[in-house]
Design a protein around this nucleic acid. Sequence first.
DNA 1: GTCTATACGCGGATAGAC
DNA 2: GTCTATCCGCGTATAGAC
Lengths: 224, 224
Amino acid sequence: MTESQAKLAPTLAESPARTVERILSAAARLFAERGMAGVGLREITAEAGVNLAAVNYHFGSKEKLLEALFARRALPITQERMRLLGRCAEAPGRQPMLEQVLEGFLRPAFSLGREAGVDGATFGKLRARLSVESVELYRRILSQAFDASTAAFLEAVVAALPDLPRAEVEWRFHFMLGTMLYTMADSGRIQSITGGTCQPSDAEMALAKLVPFLCAGFRAPPTA
Amino acid sequence: MTESQAKLAPTLAESPARTVERILSAAARLFAERGMAGVGLREITAEAGVNLAAVNYHFGSKEKLLEALFARRALPITQERMRLLGRCAEAPGRQPMLEQVLEGFLRPAFSLGREAGVDGATFGKLRARLSVESVELYRRILSQAFDASTAAFLEAVVAALPDLPRAEVEWRFHFMLGTMLYTMADSGRIQSITGGTCQPSDAEMALAKLVPFLCAGFRAPPTA
DNA sequence: GTCTATACGCGGATAGAC
DNA sequence: GTCTATCCGCGTATAGAC
């Protein structure tokens, strides 16, 4: 707390007063690995090396802890998304507009979030789980974190496909969310079916396969 | 249990000895609505009108109950899938092979499972939730229920796209699973973003939008 | 302000009475 | 076969140490 502590901080110290960070870090990893219901506060606090009650003191509840964790991780993703969207432009030598927009939407989701010891893929799993739940709290968390930037991308796709009715674009955008989230979830199903030749955990490969697939789908003729 | 009971069964009876059925029915509805962690055994047994311990007596555990429930619901889906796959054929006046195969795969998932008071959509939500979890038990349940029929459909898609490398087909098949499961989950995200014009809960509409989108994606040129 | 020890109520699970 | 009583671990709340 005081400056003297910071000055004297030993190399191998327990990093006192960083309780909040330690909890967030442990919770991020454990929630993402085993889900909200699969891990208890006692395990989180043990891993973080703090007292059980610290979670409720600093965050208020297990759910609020998730909320805090999520807000922190989602921000860099949406920021990077908006930055990439701003860079999209029709120009000779560049990819078509639709490809640029989809890549701008998908890449941050796959590659970002590597802070505080939890990589982006792990956070992606947590996000994918929350995304299929119908718990009101989870829907609120996701809405708050992603709706604004996602809506901006939907508009960009609508603009990139002027001949497609808006309703059609919305359906296909919904399908895109499905492919994105299911790939982030890395459920192991496709490996189970094929024997492991296809590895959704390879983010760069997933992007390379996903963007052309989705663009072709978006460009299909409108449904009768 | 005995024949005499069946003969004398009163119209409004508590249906004794149908305890197992009553539990399965209640659990199917509640699990699908609020997820595995969101509902307790006390609520399930109360709804079923049976004693708390009956679940553990008849099934062994909450997880085993889920397993039993899932096996029962998945079977009609895979059976219908295989029946439709057998009917797929290249013929004048019919849709192209790929469209037939995808429709055969997707339609039973969206429309089937209406037994014991729980409609297909509700079961679909449960299925979608399990599908993004990394709990070993859930993976085993899904594998056991769906791997065989799914593998058969993967082969059919490979055959319908002879110019596409197998690895490419596998990636796209994986993407298809994502669109299917996310649509079944009916997460409310697309409604939240668009204001509700697109309704994934409309199974017939979802199929009509999904099949052309996916076929176009499958038919995209192979990735470099 | 931070953190700890401790207690309460509820969850799934189980042993044993009937 | 069925039910009651009980167990242990969970999230949570709080009193008080530092």
